[in-house]
């Protein structure tokens, strides 16, 4: 599965024009195999099944929220009064520490008004927020629910 993805990425790089030799293809397969091996060693696959429906909803929400986030920042910056109320907020994240929580951090760093700055001793993620008056915690909770659902598991299971 990952191997096919990496071979696809190779094709993107190589841009086949139709005049390839077998050698080109063989090198591509070899490169994809190496990449897959590395990927499996660095990031062991968990026992998860991707739920496509939930994944599609997650992607849709991500795209929509990206637009909202960009517009939100642009509006605040262009407003002569500069309406921001920055501050920190600890969000008790349910996803256990590891690659998935990192993925959640990366995802939410692109969402409107939130930027993870690290964890705190209680296991929560600390966010820097552009405007504390926004309903940030509930928005984060929705992101988290969707991410967990897309990975086909309960929030605590791995």
């Amino acid at each position: 599965m990952r191997g096919a993805g990496f071979f696809g990425f190779w094709l993107l790089l190589a841009r086949p024009a139709g005049g390839e030799s077998w050698a080109d293809l063989a090198v591509g397969l070899l490169a994809a195999a190496l990449a897959t091996w590395t990927s499996l060693r660095l990031l062991a696959p968990g026992a998860t099944r991707v739920r496509w429906g939930a994944l599609l909803r997650l992607i849709a929400r991500f795209l929509w929220q990206s637009i909202v986030a960009g517009l939100d920042v642009a509006r605040r910056v262009l407003d002569p009064r500069l309406p921001i109320r920055p501050g920190f907020l600890a969000y008790p994240v349910r996803i256990p520490d590891g690659p998935r929580r990192a993925a959640f951090g990366a995802l939410t760093s692109l969402m409107p008004g939130t930027l993870p700055v690290g964890g705190d001793p209680d296991g929560a993620l600390v966010y820097h927020c552009l405007d504390l008056d926004q309903p940030i915690a509930s928005s984060l909770a929705r992101d988290e629910d969707l991410l967990v659902a897309a990975q086909g598991g309960a929030a605590t299971g791995d």
Binding site: F6, L13, A31, A32, A35, S39, L42
Partner: peptide, 13 residues
């Protein structure tokens, strides 16, 4: 964890 496989592909390319 995520980037190195892509780097390997780019390097070989």
């Amino acid at each position: 964890q995520v980037l190195p496989p892509f780097g390997i592909l780019v390097g070989i390319h």
